[in-house]
Every structure is written in structure tokens, then in C-alpha cells.
């Protein structure tokens, strides 16, 4: 039964990759990457159960934290890419 969940997750990951390749804007790609990360977390967890080795959950746990930080970091990078935009964004903040 874990096999079915694994296959479903892999199909979803493939579809997410298609969006990442097609995506017209950079934000579509980042969104797709974020979803890919979430799917990876579940895939690692399900794979641990599939193999009967729950130690994989530790890796999934760490990945859950890294995924969030990675998304924020990439967004931050694209935000400061252009110096003009950085100025206007800082002007908005109180």
C-alpha cells in the first residue's frame, strides 16, 4: 500500500517539474520548487515505512525545516537582484 502512495507522490513530482519548466515567471518556478520540497518530505517519510526503517523520519524532519528556509532565501535573492526594487521595497516598510 505504501507503494501506491509512493507512485502517486512521484507522479505529482513529475507534474510539478513540468510546471517548473513551463512556468512563465520566476515565481511559478519557485512555487513549483516549494511544492516539490513538500512532496520530497512525504516521499522520504513514506519510503522509510516502505523499507521498514523509520530512521528516515529524521531526514524528513530536517528537510521540512530546510525547505522553508530555502524558499525564503531564494525569494530574498530575487528581491535584491535589482537595486531599484530594493529601494522601493524598503521604502514601504515602516
Amino acid at each position: 500500500m505504501f507503494i501506491a502512495a509512493t507512485i502517486a507522490i512521484l507522479i505529482a513530482m513529475a507534474l510539478g517539474l513540468v510546471r517548473a519548466l513551463l512556468g512563465p515567471t520566476i515565481y511559478d518556478r519557485i512555487l513549483s520548487g516549494n511544492m516539490f520540497g513538500t512532496l520530497t518530505i512525504i516521499l522520504i517519510a513514506v519510503h522509510g515505512f516502505l523499507e521498514g526503517r523509520p530512521e528516515f523520519l529524521d531526514i524528513a524532519l530536517v528537510y521540512a525545516l530546510i525547505n522553508f528556509v530555502a524558499t525564503i532565501a531564494v525569494l530574498k535573492y530575487f528581491r535584491i537582484k535589482s537595486p531599484d526594487k530594493n529601494e522601493t521595497l524598503q521604502g514601504e516598510e515602516p
Binding site: A8, I9, I11, L15, G16, R19, M35, L39, I42
Partner: peptide, 11 residues
């Protein structure tokens, strides 16, 4: 699994 695939289709 079904909802994960539906979400990816939605993407």
C-alpha cells in the same frame, strides 16, 4: 495520494 496528484494537476 489522490489529492497530491489533483493538486499537481491544478498547478
Amino acid at each position: 495520494g489522490a489529492f497530491v496528484i489533483i493538486g499537481a494537476i491544478g498547478m
